[in-house]
Amino acid sequence: MNEKKISEILILGIGNVLMGDEGVGAFVAQLLSDETFPENVRCLDGGTAGFILLGEFQSADTVIMIDATVDGQTPGTWKRIEPRYSSDYPQTLTAHDIGLKDLLDAAQILGKMPKVILYAISIAPLGKVEWGLSPQIEAVVPEICEQIKKEVQRNIENVSVIKTDN
């Protein structure tokens, strides 16, 4: 029997939990940490860190990233994108994008960039220091969590062969 390495999946929530809705990615990651996933799936609240996440980021084959965006859409709407370069990311991934972009660029130049699937959740533009999410964003969190779980499932199924007899 041959064993193929199982694809490593990292669920990475980004955002500052002290900045209200800006922290939605981090909150989602915290919620998902309580779920049971297969061994090859890790869940991390990345906060607003940059380079310090590089090891975790590069050790995954697929990163499912959750982050807030200020893109003028109705707060609570979300979209799924598969960006390749840091320049493909929504420009207004709130202010912590400065660290995040360095992280992505660093992974790029080091030659190991996992596949990234980004769930970008639109939030209202007025960033304010507060703990917790607004009702509008809170309402969409269960749906995002469900989507992420499905995303994990799809990515596991996509790994063509996990164990084969030959």
Binding site: M19, E22, T92, A95, H96, P125, G127, V129
Partner: peptide, 14 residues
């Protein structure tokens, strides 16, 4: 400056 001041930039551009 992140800890000194934070966080939101209307342009969000680096």
């Amino acid at each position: 400056i992140a800890c000194a001041v934070h966080l939101y930039d209307p342009q969000g551009k680096y």
